[in-house]
């Protein structure tokens, strides 16, 4: 995992201090690449979804993936935990090489390290909030039930839902569901979390509570890759923004920098459309 990823020349150097106070989190980023995709391609039939993507994440880094819908952002992070099989190229996750031929059983070892939070939450509807959280630690990590429950209670406290522990998911609001989903992913004690548009299915007034939890995680130094349409989150919380269009990483760099002075025409057009609403 030592070699530096091949960064294209337009990349802003990481961790370089920016004059913004909001860049405080990036100080924590460590100079160690933990997730790396090299020359990755993904085809659906003969549709070319991801084109020679080089993507990496460093330890404790928060990376925001932005771009128009259908650009391949979600496909990219779904390839990173093997939910989608990349067609060719290399993916390396915490020292494990992720091969498209791997069985679910083999992928399990990678997925324990990299949790995922979905747009549609995907909570288990037949289990209570607590059961949702302790299921995987008990089944996969073979954790003792008592220990799992203790841990779940700490996590529920952390996402502000301690009072909902014995409730079924259909009694929760979207924002609460997503916070349970985050607690469920954290219960596996992953090294990194992937977020696939975590707030896109939420009513606008519920977005804040989920972003708050994510912001707390970022501050604690969790390694995160976030596909998002929340530009304010991307700008204020992430250490690096990656702009994808038509399956190509067009541009990436320091969020303040990229939002203020996008280098590519595509980025400019996209940002003009989505930033008009930002304060």
């Amino acid at each position: 995992m030592e070699p530096e990823p091949a960064l294209s020349s337009k990349d802003a150097p990481l961790g370089q201090s920016s004059p913004s106070a909001q860049m405080a989190f990036s100080n924590a980023v460590e100079d160690e690449v933990v997730i790396q995709a090299t020359k990755m391609n993904k085809f659906y039939g003969d549709k070319h979804i991801l084109k020679d993507v080089d993507f990496h994440v460093q330890k404790r880094e928060v990376v925001a993936l932005i771009g128009p819908s259908g650009s391949g952002k979600s496909t990219l992070i779904r390839c990173l935990n093997g939910l989608e099989k990349h067609t060719n190229g290399e993916i390396c996750i915490y020292g494990h090489t992720l091969d498209p031929q791997m069985s679910v059983k083999q992928l399990s070892y990678i997925r324990r390290e990299v949790g995922m939070v979905f747009q549609q939450f995907n909570l288990f509807p037949h289990m209570t909030v607590l059961q949702n959280i302790i299921e995987a630690p008990m089944q996969v990590r073979k954790m003792a039930k008592k220990h799992a429950i203790d841990m779940a209670e700490v996590l529920l406290d952390k996402v502000g839902l301690a009072s909902k522990r014995d409730v079924y998911p259909n009694r929760l609001s979207g924002g609460q569901k997503q916070r349970v989903a985050i607690a469920r992913a954290l219960a596996m004690q992953p090294q990194a979390l992937l977020f696939d548009e975590p707030t896109s299915a939420l009513d606008p007034e519920l977005v804040g509570e989920v972003l708050k939890v994510m912001r707390d995680l970022a501050e604690e130094g969790m390694t995160m890759v976030v596909v998002t349409h929340e530009m304010q989150f991307a700008r204020d919380v992430s250490d690096r923004v990656v702009f994808i269009a038509d399956g190509v990483i067009m541009e990436q760099g320091d969020p303040q920098e990229l939002f203020r002075r996008p280098q590519q025409e595509r980025t400019k057009l996209f940002l003009e459309r989505v930033l008009s609403t930002l304060p």
Binding site: L107, R111, A136, M188
Partner: peptide
């Protein structure tokens, strides 16, 4: 997908 993402077989 959720189960697989948690490492379940």
């Amino acid at each position: 997908e959720a189960a697989f993402s948690l490492g379940m077989t």
